[in-house]
Design a protein around this nucleic acid. Sequence first.
DNA 1: CGGCGTTATTGATCTAGGTCATCTGAAGTA
DNA 2: TACTTCAGATGACCTAGATCAATAACGCCG
Lengths: 237, 237
Amino acid sequence: MDAKCPHNTEVNCGDCRMNALCLPLALQTKEISQLDEIVQRGRPLQKEGHIYHAGEEFKSVFAVRSGSVKSYTVTNEGQEQVTGFHLPGEIFGMDGIAHNHYTNSAIAMETAAVCEIPFSNLQELSIAIPSLQRHFFQLMSKEITNDQSLITLLSKNTAEERVATLLLSISNRNLRRKLSGVRFRLPMSRADIGNYLGLTVETVSRVFGRFQKQDILLVDKKEIEILNIDQLRNLAN
Amino acid sequence: MDAKCPHNTEVNCGDCRMNALCLPLALQTKEISQLDEIVQRGRPLQKEGHIYHAGEEFKSVFAVRSGSVKSYTVTNEGQEQVTGFHLPGEIFGMDGIAHNHYTNSAIAMETAAVCEIPFSNLQELSIAIPSLQRHFFQLMSKEITNDQSLITLLSKNTAEERVATLLLSISNRNLRRKLSGVRFRLPMSRADIGNYLGLTVETVSRVFGRFQKQDILLVDKKEIEILNIDQLRNLAN
DNA sequence: CGGCGTTATTGATCTAGGTCATCTGAAGTA
DNA sequence: TACTTCAGATGACCTAGATCAATAACGCCG
């Protein structure tokens, strides 16, 4: 397998293009190789392939290496609730720590590759490398603040504000990966967007329509171009 | 100050009635006294007294000893968003870890006492006591799963389902403290309930009204008696 | 005790977004 | 190439809960 292939499973953490995003900055070379030993690089996942199912025993947290992943739960009435979208360089699976079982399921939204980090090893290593412990406390805290902004979004904002906010979030996360913040492909369906934002597909579709009519966006199926990011920011507020 | 006084600040962790809730079960007597040394027991807070403000430098997490506390953020439009209610034995303030500044403000909803746990000391101690590290990972993960159920509640459930779910949550948390799960006093106002659940005060009031008419609840201002907990569970689903 | 601000209740109306139904087009497949 | 499927867009209508407005009931303080 070619080292440049984005789904390559053979690379180690030190060489991975994503390491600036998922590892603590302060890590020494020696420490990186310690981490490398516990990280398991899984083979590429097909679209719709599960990384884990809700209820399974919690063993590991995961980092997205390529592609994209969504987390979701199923309510007692059987409806799906999307709880997060995970792009390359992002960590997911930390919801499982509390009860020793995953509360979410995680599924690839397109062809993807993930790194598996066994949590018991990570705990031990965190004791040897305090900056790693700190890093994981921070990652979990960030997840908490993210979830809380979603709570605020859902309880206070209109459909347009919610969609605008999601687009800006994806734009920012693309920038972090040195990709374009104004032209990108949405990895998720309209249904997933609606589900995540507490809206119906129809409403999402209509909001995209309105944004196009106002020359804020150019939408071609999943390809998005942000034409007026300032106005989008205004709308998101 | 009398040792039996609920707002007493002189007690240590080993004697505290709440220790089964906020400390890891596995802690040894010696370890408890190590923890005791870093925990600072603050003096009682007046109603509306702030524990910290959003934006302040993050230094500590806190445990509720008595009374009750609410966390909230203020949106860019200046509206308050309640992000959590904290009852005795519960830990709060973990949102601050991510950015080294609190993202929420925390305020006493009634006379309350809190224990302050300086986070840098806690991190060090977590390295010496692995079960403490594990415990805090779990606490943070629990916060994540709680926030995610709130997200689901807000995006999928009706006003009645939301109110029923909150009442059952408070009921369960009272049971954990060996208090009645069916008769209790709500520490928060209708406005706080509405804000937390993404509803207006009027809607909350009407839902309470309907629940009373159906003989599910007996409501007298903030005093609640659950008359039919099974039906409440059905409604919450 | 009486006046006043705050919190809760209740009623009347309005609206954002849900529901339902139809239509289009792209992608897969036989 | 024709057939099916599924994601997305769009239009017509409806409803849960918001908004606005009035009233009641409670502390709280001089």
